[in-house]
Design a protein around this nucleic acid. Structure first.
Length: 211
DNA sequence: CTCCCGATAT
DNA sequence: ATATCAGGAG
């Protein structure tokens, strides 16, 4: 199958129709909680992150409280999420920067977010898009895999896919499209055993049956 | 490129 | 038993 702009537009239309009601899987009450939840979500399921953050934020709901808790205690709190030494160190360093440079608040500027320890392009895009409601497409493992399989956006790096998606999708839909692709990736276009037979995008997917 | 890493799905 | 999970840093 040759992927034309018309087919990409059809893929976007189907995704929008099927996944119009999806919302973020990570639970959070403010930009700070979202930032910490996304840092924790690396190589970890959203279900496990939600269990962890509910306990963590009950004890330490902001940057000052996490600093007061100390690194050893923070490591215990987030251990179940994996990569816990790196994540704890990064979260602690980020909390210090937030407390000392931004009055405990999460900065809205994208490049400022990127400089925070443990915050890469994907996390910065999630915060930009979801917490601050500005157009951005965060490319995580699901978005990367689904975009490449559909050839909606092809690339060997998340940045290449992000740029391709921004061309293929109207800016007003960027933030939603991120969620469409994630949900599609989890429920249907799964990494291990994709459900091509029951995929609503089967007719417009060049990878159908050969993954 | 490698390392970090426990929990979960298959 | 192994692949994968809302990645990022060195």
């Amino acid at each position: 199958m040759r992927i034309t702009k018309k087919i990409k537009a059809e893929q976007v239309a189907i995704l929008e129709a099927v996944y119009s009601d999806v919302k973020p899987a990570l639970r959070f009450r403010n930009p700070f909680e979202l930032l910490i939840a996304v840092i924790l979500s690396a190589q970890c399921t959203d279900v496990r992150v939600n269990i962890t953050t509910e306990r963590l934020f009950a004890k330490a709901p902001d940057a000052e409280a996490i600093i007061a808790m100390g690194l050893a205690e923070l490591e215990k709190e987030i251990k179940d999420c994996g990569l816990f030494r790196n994540k704890a160190k990064n979260i602690m360093a980020t909390c210090h920067i937030l407390a000392e440079e931004f009055g405990g608040q999460v900065p809205e500027d994208f490049d400022t977010l990127l400089k925070l320890p443990g915050v890469g392009r994907k996390t910065a895009n999630v915060v930009t898009s979801i917490a601050f409601n500005r157009p951005a497409i965060a490319v995580d493992t699901h978005v990367f895999r689904v975009s490449n399989r559909l050839k909606l956006a092809v690339g060997e790096t998340p940045l290449e896919v992000e740029e391709g998606l921004m061309k293929a999708i109207p800016q007003t839909l960027w933030s939603q499209a991120h969620h469409w692709l994630i949900w599609h990736g989890r429920r249907v276009c799964k990494a291990r055993k994709p459900l091509c037979e029951e995929c609503p995008l089967g007719e417009v997917c060049p990878s159908r049956g050969r993954v």
